[in-house]
Nucleic acid binder design. Sequence first.
RNA 1: GGGCGGUUGGCUCAGCGGUAGAGCGCUGCCUUCACACGGCAGAGGUCACUGGUUCGAACCCAGUACCGCCCACCA
Length: 844
Amino acid sequence: MTKKPSDLPEIEAKWRAEWERSGVYDYDPARPRQETFVVDTPPPTVSGSLHIGHVFSFTHTDLMVRYRRMRGDNIFYPMGWDDNGLPTERRVQNVFNVRCDPSLPYDPTLNPEFGREGETVAVSRRNFIELCDRVVVEDEKSFMDLWQRLGLSIDWRQTYATIDERSRRVSQLSFLRLIEKGEAELREAPTMWDVDFQSAVAQAEVEDREREGAFYKLRFDVQGGDHVLIATTRPELLPACIAVVTHPKDTRYSSLIGGTAVTPLFRAPVPIIADDAADPEKGTGILMVCTFGDAADVDWWRRLGVPAREVIDRAGRIVPAPWGDGQWSSIDPEQARSYHDKLAGLSINQARKEIVALLGDAGALEGEPESVRRPVKFFEKGERPLEFVVSRQWFIKVLDKKQELIEQGRKIEWHPDMFRARYENWVEGLNQDWCVSRQRYFGVPIPVWYRISEDGTVDYDALILPAPEDLPVDPSAEVPPRYTEDQRGRAGGFVGDPDIFDTWATSSLTPLIPTGWPDDIEKFKSLYPTDLRPQGHDIIRTWAFTTITRSYLEDGSVPWWHIALSGWVLDPDRKKMSKSKGNVILPTDLLDEFGSDAVRYWAGSIRLGLDPATDWNVIREGKRLVTKIRNAARLVMGFEGPSGDPTHPLDQDLNARLRRLVQEVTDRWEAWDHAGALATTETWFWQDFCDNYLELIKTRAYDGDPSALGTLRSSLDVVLRLFAPFVPFAAEEVWSTMGKDISIHVAPWPRPDELPETTDSGVFDVVIALLSQIRKSKSEAKVSIKTPVDRLIVKGSPRDLTLLDRAIDDLLATANVVEHEVVADDAAEEPEAYVELGATEIRA
RNA sequence: GGGCGGUUGGCUCAGCGGUAGAGCGCUGCCUUCACACGGCAGAGGUCACUGGUUCGAACCCAGUACCGCCCACCA
């Protein structure tokens, strides 16, 4: 057996191929549910970059899976790819330099090259989706390579993609059932909207970012009175102002309540209303309600029951407004129109500057703007602040079942448990139903058509739904039952919903997709609810939440019994890694440099839920451990002679310590503490086994003592299995030299009672205490450890000396003692060694 | 503003009721016959702070201060 680091790639490749060939990771559908361990594997976003965080969290999953497999479980460990959604669209746009224009016709000859230069080309939706399919194949391959190099014990026969036919079918079918139950609804309402992507976004995809802004104090006239100053950071929304709100107990403004204010420039009369939600501390304590600046505006607008004055379009520009007409009432429509004309067509930022100038000129701006930093809502993948735009979107109702969803969460074991609180926190804080429709192209289409009335208007209440057996469907390309294509878009005909689902609307069904729902109910029943959802804690509010929700809505079930949360990997300086900072560590580089086992060791040394800093030292430590295991095994396997039961006290003690270790490590695993399992095993192996035991019994081992040989071999056998989940390549490599006919990864997990029943007599401790003192003497004398001890005098209690007597030969041989004497001392607490080295006498 | 974590030797972390541990780093020694990707030994900590419970607290309780994460309508 060789152990040069340069051999690692070959060794890894050899075992990968062998595992694949022999099918050690295959799921066996014939075995019953109670023997099966089902993983709801996270489907990585394939168009995202390979990240060290992936390696980290997927290793955590694999550790538990390998432990369970060795415990005898039938493992269902599938792999999914999340390929629909924005990341893929973005990548296609960049890679092929194209953009999607749904109005264009399909071009079957279009075949752009990777990395195409030149002008951006507009392509049809169908062409665009074809390109998405192309990049996704490439991306999946690089992930698969990474997983295989890492040694993940996935059953590669169980794979799916969130855009594949089965996923589309499951996603659409589940959604249709929600419509049937009244849990999914089409609503026309103000929704958070990204003006760049031009799509609705869900609450879970929104994040706050601190932005510079300024308070402007606007002077509103009060009818039959003076005027009032209203502070706002968004003066460009002034034309959309529909009311003014103050706190009912704010004495500064109480006399105004019930009255009417008039907006500057546009001269729109708006009611002055009172509401507890108004904060007297903020701004001037009185604010304007606009359609729509934020979620509070939406509430007030609903309560007022007046038509909205929408001034921002879907691309984030100011729209023209018919002042003096309908809801655009103004005391001076002419003036309103002339001001508004100056804003129409401008972007939000331009409009803000312009209106500030206009207000200033009109003398309606009080004082200097006061700069403030405040949180602004952004789409997590977006670059401009979100707006509220009225649009028609599909929602899944969640607000009416917060309590039930919290209850569902309590049926699940969270590892570590503290993340349950984060989940509950999120559910309690929900303030919108889940918007699942997106105005994008690459994703699962919403499987709905709408009837077009005889007058040519779309009747959104008249849904036309596909038959379940026809799923998946693309309503833009396919015709609903009993209609023909020439009725598309015609009066009396139909129109397909042009939108797709939010990526989480499909990802939330990952427990259902690979388990056969609903087509293979036998398979489904044997795999669902699943056992384990592994994921990062950063996506509790999205993936964990939406999955719990969908399972609950589908049949009241929980999707899994356990959820294991892995942390977020930081760079060596505890900073978040990001491409822009240039501190991203590529997992493939890591594997090249240190090997899979060492990288897995690093991941395995970190407990669930912790955000680790990348620590090169720990990875190196893993590499050293691998070397140590190989070398120790080489020594043990090199001894010749038959194995026997442990009859020697040292062997018995070592064996007893190993039995204890097995129990403790197993307990750690059962407590979801892989890091504890690793640390405990490593300490025993390195200290008890290598540094102490192996050195003490070498002489007997070379002499072929069956007690020593038996103990060495069974210890190696057991400890290798304890290490196997962490360092599967090295463990298998060594195991294969031991004449085993099965892979270590399907070998039984060690049990204390598979080892001879011995107890720790204390001989080991006494001998090690003395050996340590002798070593110290030699170290202080600055001589080699093999320097002979001319004379050794041991003082100790009669009890310790009795223990020592049973193993003194091993001690004398190991320490290279020429002559010794044992002196009983009733007062001695610890045994003491007096060492003579040549002419020098040293008391240890 | 609400919630959840953390604060232990230079660094990364373990310990979670009996008066401090590991790895790395540092210092000295050992070319040792499995392993120098090794071994032996050493220096280094009032376990954030303040009270309390206890015979006894890094560990339990209360509070404080920092740090981090999550959430919150952000005029």
